[in-house]
Computed example of a mutant assay.
Amino acid sequence: MKKIISLFASALLMSVLFLSCNAKKSSGKLQVVTTIYPVYDWVENILGEKSSDVEVTLLLDNGVDLHNYQPSADDIVKIINSDVFIYVGGESDEWVDDVLENAVNKNMVVVNLLEEIGDAAKEEEFVEGMQQEDEHEHEDEDEDEHEHHHDEEEAEYDEHVWLSLRNASVLTKSIASALKKVDSKNADVYEANSLAYIEKLSILDKEYSAAVSSAKRKTLLFADRFPFRYMTEDYGLKYYTAFIGCSAETEASFDTVIFLSKKLDELNLPVVLTIEGKSHRIAETVVAGSKNKNQKILSLNSLQASSKKDFTNGKDYLSVMYANLDVLKEALK
């Protein structure tokens, strides 16, 4: 699928390159392009009072998550004409390399989030009871065997870096540095705003640490995809889950459901967790399969399909992470 997306982006490049070479910034403002909402929000906090002087574009602004996003021709034009482009840098962003090779603005500053966090980047992991994505073993049976094994051996990193407050602090600093490079006259403003925002992140990080330290339990059970690997690593939490964070699965196997139900009983957990969304069928089935059948089903917001329209009346990255802390406290009682 990722190869198809990359080819799709390459084809789009051919159709937009001529127009983009003649494109001009309609607003005359500094152009910053981000793929995901958390980064968009970090940028706005760093800009602060200078926000009106910068045009910030959020590409994933229609409810599509990172793993299913395909850039439109208009998206590509915005990227290759931008002054700063910020993206996650994982497998879902394989199309980016082709786009950047055709950048019109040769002075563009590019921020790859996975590269910026360095050794803090985590490979996807399979834990006990997690459902393997076996269907991939049976599709495209005529695919070249060598290429198949090569793909299997490539490390796949967890892309959900924004769900670690500690990563968010590192990345806020990196984004501020990028903005200072392209707009040096406002460097002091960006520095001051980034330090103030990092302090807010640090305060919340300490609240998470205190909550986990005083909690009765140290294990989470997810009946869903699990994009919170970075968060559990930060605070020393153990987890069991139905699927890895980037899984496209929506139906859990009988064995997976039974395993999670038994773990629920074994650990006497009061909560089954899911990510945001309307359907919690797997969680309901896991609860129904337990002895007590009375566990709460609560959701942690992964922010991976968020758009600007979801964030009104003061709601932002920090408020969502505070709400997630409340859910975490309930799950660890």
Score class of each variant (00 low, 15 high):
326 D>Q: 14
194 S>Y: 01
280 H>D: 15
133 E>W: 01
69 Y>K: 08
326 D>M: 08
99 V>F: 00
302 S>R: 08
280 H>N: 14
156 E>A: 10
208 Y>V: 01
36 I>L: 10
46 I>K: 04
54 V>T: 09
161 V>F: 00
224 D>C: 06
108 M>E: 07
238 K>Q: 12
107 N>R: 10
166 R>K: 15
154 E>V: 15
323 A>Q: 13
63 G>N: 02
190 Y>S: 04
265 D>F: 00
123 E>L: 09
255 D>T: 11
146 H>V: 15
295 Q>N: 11
210 A>N: 12
164 S>F: 01
97 D>S: 14
306 S>A: 15
195 L>E: 15
44 E>R: 10
94 E>V: 09
192 A>V: 07
194 S>M: 04
185 K>H: 11
31 Q>V: 05
65 D>C: 13
80 I>F: 03
170 V>D: 03
283 A>P: 06
1 M>A: 15
180 K>C: 10
81 N>M: 04
225 R>G: 04
285 T>Q: 14
6 S>E: 15
212 V>I: 07
249 E>F: 08
126 F>L: 14
203 I>E: 15
328 L>M: 09
191 E>I: 07
42 W>T: 07
212 V>P: 01
243 F>V: 05
27 S>T: 14
294 N>E: 13
208 Y>S: 04
198 I>G: 00
312 T>G: 08
105 N>K: 09
53 D>P: 01
248 A>Q: 12
125 E>Q: 12
44 E>V: 10
23 A>L: 06
11 A>F: 12
5 I>L: 11
248 A>T: 13
325 L>K: 05
81 N>S: 09
281 R>I: 10
197 Y>E: 08
69 Y>A: 06
79 I>H: 04
133 E>D: 11
172 T>I: 02
217 R>C: 04
304 Q>W: 07
97 D>G: 09
316 D>E: 08
107 N>G: 11
298 L>K: 11
286 V>K: 03
318 L>T: 08
12 L>M: 13
307 S>A: 14
